[in-house]
């Protein structure tokens, strides 16, 4: 399973770079064997190789960044993968707002009725802001996207950035229409309980198989 996870991490490192959502210092991790596998923040994601992915035990974080990943895994049993990124429109919103609303169905389904901005990148602030959500922004910094699988964390990264572009773009056009909280919560419930459950379970099984 470890080799499959490493292979998958390498694939998503390339995808995140191609999606233009990352900068130097961003990291990807997956929960593994009482700890996690995490990429080095010292190389651009496009250049990450097998040797740049290390195992970190949950009791022995190497630095502040790995401690943040481990704290999220410790606080949230439902999370198995984390991507920290710097998607440009999310970064722009995180400079001046405390949250932004879902203006698109897929953001409501996958992220929730709003995306919140954590006041800092400290674990306590991030975990509090992530409560009940799969992703959050960090004030004057980037994005934390999580998922039951790495695939879901990647989709969350893409959908959150698209949601940010939709909110910014429709505001520029003079009319950002938010999805009502009722509709957003309904769509999120259906997504979590029906639409994505089988798909995510299959993807987790593939890694174990």
């Amino acid at each position: 399973m470890k080799n499959k996870l490493i292979k998958q991490i390498l694939e998503f490192c390339k995808e995140m770079e191609e999606d233009k959502l990352v900068k130097l210092g961003d990291t990807i991790s997956v929960r593994f064997d009482g700890g996690m596998l995490i990429t080095s923040p010292l190389k651009p994601m496009a250049e990450i190789g097998e040797e740049d992915i290390v195992y970190v035990d949950k009791k022995e974080p190497k630095d502040e960044l790995s401690a943040l990943h481990l704290s999220i895994y410790g606080a949230r049993e439902d999370i198995n993968a984390i991507i920290i990124n710097h998607a440009p429109y999310c970064v722009g919103i995180a400079k001046g707002l405390k949250k932004f609303p879902a203006c698109l169905d897929d953001m409501a389904q996958i992220i929730g009725p709003t995306a919140k901005v954590a006041p800092s990148g400290k674990a306590v602030d991030v975990i509090k802001t992530l409560n009940g959500r799969n992703a959050c922004l960090i004030k004057n910094d980037g994005v934390i996207a999580t998922g039951r699988t790495l695939d879901e964390a990647h989709t969350g990264s893409l959908v959150l950035e698209k949601g940010a572009i939709a909110y910014v773009g429709s505001t520029v056009l003079g009319n950002a229409v938010k999805i009502s909280t009722f509709d957003a919560l309904l769509m999120r419930f259906i997504y979590k309980t029906k639409y994505s459950k089988k798909d995510q379970a299959e993807k987790q099984a593939e890694l174990k198989g």
Binding site: C103, L104, A166, V168, G169, S170, N175, V177
Partner: peptide, 10 residues
């Protein structure tokens, strides 16, 4: 992405 942004402005 951008078509969705226009769709959000209705």
């Amino acid at each position: 992405v951008w078509s969705s942004a226009v769709a959000a402005a209705r």
